[in-house]
């Protein structure tokens, strides 16, 4: 081991510390989002569950000739099921993205990020945008397969409207993923997210029409978190009377998930 040689050292440059800039947008950059997207796409399980599975579900349930061509509002039953499956993929993407925040906290990566200029809101925004891109992949994949099979029919504008609505609406589940992740931080949180979303999907009528449920179950289902969003994103196709309870359901769950995530986040940082 060598001994220190102070004489060799260059005197520190006179730098005005205040002259160093703070990043705009709290450190949020497209380049970081791009790395996150590459990372998500590298995870085969995520890609299978959010993109491949919804496509398979559509192929399984959306093409059945006994009902696929039945008329529904401005289109047909196949289009209705396609929208449901795209929504399922999109919410799986955003919920997983939210839960990643707690997984990375567990790994100590968030602590590493705390000695960079990245602010917590910018970090969460990076996760949300990344999961929106993954969700867009799910929507485009399901809709593209729908187009190729020629089964779903609805006016072109409604393809775009429903696709955009469910894609943006899926952001509700970023808050859900954040909340669950902070509530039960573990590397197994993804399984829990997958299982809850499966239940919510049944409750929301994504997999089985709610009309096939018994009356008490049907009433209960209208209070579940995917119910309002699912009804709203189908509205351009189904048309008819607009029910304000759909919007109320969506807003209520948005408030619950967001408040829950903020509550846990505060508790969590207070402890450190």
């Amino acid at each position: 081991m060598s001994s220190p040689a102070p004489s060799l050292r260059v005197p520190p440059a006179a730098i005005d510390p205040q002259s160093r800039p703070v990043p705009p947008l709290g450190g949020f950059t497209a380049a970081v989002v791009a790395i996150e997207i590459r990372r998500v796409l590298r995870n085969r399980r995520t890609v299978i569950f959010t993109i491949v599975v919804p496509v398979l579900f559509f192929l399984l349930f959306g093409l059945n000739s006994s009902y696929a061509t039945n008329r529904v509002g401005e289109g047909n039953e196949s289009a209705f099921i396609m929208i449901s499956m795209a929504l399922y993929g999109a919410v799986l993407a955003t919920a997983s993205g939210g839960a990643m925040v707690s997984v990375e906290r567990l790994l100590g990566w968030s602590r590493q990020l705390r000695i960079t200029p990245l602010t917590p809101p910018a970090y969460i925004a990076i996760k949300m945008v990344t999961s929106l891109v993954l969700g867009l992949g799910a929507v485009l994949a399901v809709y593209a397969v729908g187009l190729l099979t020629h089964k779903p029919t609805m006016p072109a504008a409604i393809w775009v409207e429903t696709g955009a609505a469910l894609w943006i609406g899926s952001l509700l589940f970023s808050a859900f993923g954040l909340f669950v992740g902070y509530l039960l931080p573990s590397e197994n949180v993804m399984q829990l997210i997958g299982f809850s979303l499966m239940l919510f999907s049944f409750g929301g009528g994504l997999f089985i029409p709610l009309s096939q449920f018994s009356h008490p179950l049907r009433v209960l289902a209208t209070y579940t978190p995917l119910y309002g969003l699912n009804q709203l994103v189908h509205y351009p196709l189904v048309q008819g009377a607009f029910d304000w309870t759909w919007a109320a359901n969506l807003l209520a769950w948005l408030v619950i998930f967001t408040a829950g995530a903020i509550w846990r986040f505060r508790k969590d940082t207070a402890r450190v």
Partner: peptide, 8 residues
């Protein structure tokens, strides 16, 4: 204690 992301 700073963790790293294993999949990067």
């Amino acid at each position: 204690t700073g963790g790293l992301l294993k999949d990067l």
